[in-house]
Design a protein around this nucleic acid. Structure first.
Lengths: 342, 342
DNA sequence: CCCAGTGCCCAAAGCGCTTTCAATTATGTA
DNA sequence: TACATAATTGAAAGCGCTTTGGGCACTGGG
């Protein structure tokens, strides 16, 4: 069933039917009713590809999903998507997801953009000096970046959390508790958030004349395995750290396993603060020792970004171009005073 | 840059350029080279919406993602998507994801199908007597169902795991270990896999003249909270179960927390077998007591379904219509002989 | 020398929709 | 009663692509 058939059925022109459906004012209310009724009966749905071709809009936002045979799926991605979806469903938007090899993201993004079947782009996994920014700017298509790109001029629309502030505050708390030996379990160093969090830690330490030892910084994929490995390394250090900053509750999961296996007690021998993206699966309060965290909901960020993206496409009012969300520092049981000097 | 411009630039007709790009034989090799070269220089990409409109194909597979403000995002969904994506990227396919209220899935699916921007559909979260099947059959669009629909004629293309067999085997193992009092922590009862797993447990029990007590069966969302709550309930039973069958490692996570909080030892006081979808975050071997599991990779299922879907769209050879994968029963430390009668 | 066959290429139709421009009828106003 | 004005509706162009149905220039066998 297409427009033509529907209009013939109704004895109207395609024009009128189209107008009736799209809420144009110049159509008689009685006629509109009749059209709507017929749509209900026939189950007619406009062909999106045709609509897109005719209007240039298609009610879809595009994103690329990094994936590869060895590539471990990322819980953060799913959670973020849920947030986007929550908002999208309210506006009858959908997503076009282009899977792409992680090394091919910039090309994939360009392909997606020029493919002509998305109205706006969402970009994540930002890196320092991210090469995608230049491309996006040249594109004349709305986009919002989740995160920022360290080292690039901040002249692009983004939503980010204050990673540096979060880790600065967390570090200060641990300092106040008397800790002197710190370690950082971070995400891959090329990612923006990792750079900023590291900076946050280092500047808090610097204020006390401390530095972050190279041996005490791990930059790796945020999986529980990597958390385990990193923590094992830390614990074997001659002068092992007593305070751990951790970029994700996923890493913390592995880290805590290592702590337990070493027979140490979390919150006493070792204090740990993790960043909490509010993953449904990894609630800090459900850890055997509830985790002190810096918190910011990934899902809420998804909702907000979808709002901005969709709002822009629909030309609904101005949106702030750049948002920086504060995180909350929530103290639970995984932090405690520094143990007495051995 | 569109076809028209490109062809004018080359002094060729749109026809020839189009043919050159799509690998038709009736175009001079030299001409084709010239076209390809121009494409490289101009960065021309065909408009997907126009292609779709003209050909009816667009290289995309559609799926609906259940989502709602309160709706907890599902790790299983993300993991499955990763599998789909891994295969899709090889064929330059993408996804169109329609977010939808969980109560609106059948309508959302129809909208997606008739929207005309997907070539095939993937359907999950199957229920008993699933109403979507009838709709899908009437659609004349390729689709593959992940799972099955209990109570419906099995005359549709699906890929499923042998849920009944898995839980039958798991139950038998526990019976052999001497357990007499069983409990089942399952997903929502309207879902197909939950029905079959339950049946598997019950038929194994029935062979020994045992039955599954109503108090010892929990059907709820597969979250760690629900796992915790269910297990707490089980443990308060006057004659508490010693053997637990668990539909997900996510549920197991909560369940084990309850076991620990009750001061009981997993694998001794309580034996537990969970189904393992091979989620990267929840490796059974990484639990404090490594989990005995029935295993089947969700991601592998995603890859396979994408193969079938894409293969069908591309008319590449026949694919089996129905696949039932066996699961593996992997014994680790969470199962042990039934404790002596108290 | 003629004609069927082959190799290449093009004009134009059509996919299903939106939107401009124009036509027709109804409604007031002078 | 006559004419400007508003209220509805339609015809047709166009979005960017694929594909059908020719057309033209060569070849080579008869």
């Amino acid at each position: 069933m297409n427009l033509k058939q529907l209009s013939e059925l109704l004895g109207l022109s395609q024009t009128t039917v189209s107008r009736a459906l799209n809420g144009y004012p110049e159509v008689n209310e009685a006629t509109r009713e009749r059209v709507l009724q017929a749509v209900k009966e026939t189950g007619y749905r406009p062909n999106k590809a045709a609509q897109r071709l005719a209007t240039g809009k298609a009610g879809s936002i595009g994103l690329v999903m990094p994936t590869a045979p060895g590539h471990q799926s990322d819980v953060h991605f799913g959670e973020f998507l849920a947030g986007l979806g929550e908002e999208a469903v309210r506006h009858d938007f959908h997503f076009v997801i282009m899977p792409a090899d992680p090394d091919d993201e910039v090309a994939a993004l360009r392909r997606l953009a020029v493919s002509g079947n998305v109205d706006a782009l969402f970009v994540a996994y930002m890196r320092g000096h991210d090469p995608r920014l230049a491309m996006l700017k040249s594109l004349s298509m709305p986009y919002v970046v989740h995160g920022r790109s360290f080292g690039s001029e901040p002249d692009y629309p983004f939503l980010d959390i204050d990673n540096e502030g979060a880790f600065y505050d967390a570090t200060r708390l641990l300092l106040q508790l008397g800790h002197k030996r710190f370690a950082l379990m971070n995400g891959p160093m090329h990612l923006d958030f990792a750079i900023r969090r590291r900076n946050g830690v280092m500047s808090a330490l610097a204020e006390r004349g401390l530095a972050l030892d190279e041996d005490c910084a791990s930059h790796a994929l945020m999986t529980d395995e990597q958390g385990l490995l990193a923590m094992e390394r830390f614990l074997q250090l001659p002068d092992r750290p007593t305070a751990i900053l951790c970029s994700s509750t996923v890493l913390a999961l592995g880290a805590i396993r290592a702590v337990n296996q070493a027979g140490l007690r979390l919150g006493e021998d070792i204090s740990l603060i993790a960043h909490d993206d509010v993953l449904p699966l990894l609630k800090p309060e459900n850890f055997s020792v509830p985790l002190t965290t810096t918190r910011s909901s990934l899902r809420a960020a998804g909702v907000r970004i979808a709002q901005r993206l969709i709002g822009t496409v629909k030309q609904a009012g101005p949106f702030p171009d750049q948002e920086l969300w504060k995180t909350e520092l929530i103290v639970r049981a995984s932090t405690g005073p520094a143990p007495q000097q051995r």
